[in-house]
């Protein structure tokens, strides 16, 4: 799909932006649980690929609609593999040192029941992100 003008790009950006926002909103027709697995060199070296596959396969098997995607380095190289979970209407939560066992716990307890699960990376400093 070729974008031929600035106007076309602006329009596409607005559509994509609304779509992305919709996923994270509560009670939106497209809202869905989002799982982001860090797949940078540091993440993959620490074993994030099998974790990605685990979330993808297990969420499908357990009939939990979710969007599982990969991302670059979130910055927490010391705690790889890291996974960010966004439940619609809530702030994203990042888990560190994720194993298959931890992933299972995250699915069953955090995602399904909304219970707190150990392993959340504390954010003890502020991060301002621009786009």
């Amino acid at each position: 799909m070729k974008i031929r003008s600035k106007e076309e790009l602006n329009k596409l950006r607005d559509v994509l932006k609304a779509k992305a926002a919709g996923l994270a909103q509560k009670d939106n027709s497209s809202s869905i649980i989002q799982v982001k697995v860090t797949m940078s060199t540091c993440g993959i070296a620490s074993g994030s690929r099998p974790i990605f596959d685990f979330f993808k396969e297990e969420l499908a098997k357990r009939n939990i609609p979710a969007k599982v995607s990969q991302s670059g380095c979130m910055g927490f190289c010391y705690a790889e593999p890291t996974v960010e979970i966004t439940i619609p209407g809530e702030n994203p939560v990042i888990f560190g040192f994720v194993t298959n066992k931890k992933a299972d716990e995250i699915i069953e307890r955090f995602i399904r029941k909304g219970e707190l699960v150990e392993g959340i990376i504390p954010q003890d400093y502020e991060t301002v992100i621009f786009n």
Binding site: L12, R13, S71, T127, V128
Partner: peptide, 29 residues
């Protein structure tokens, strides 16, 4: 203490293999 992410604004946020993710965050604007 704050981190301010300008160069890393999309790192860990978008799927780097999806150009649509980049555009949704004002990419190529």
């Amino acid at each position: 203490t704050s981190q301010i992410r300008i160069a890393l604004r999309n790192c860990g946020i978008i799927d780097p293999e999806q150009i649509e993710d980049y555009i949704a965050r004002d990419g190529y604007i």
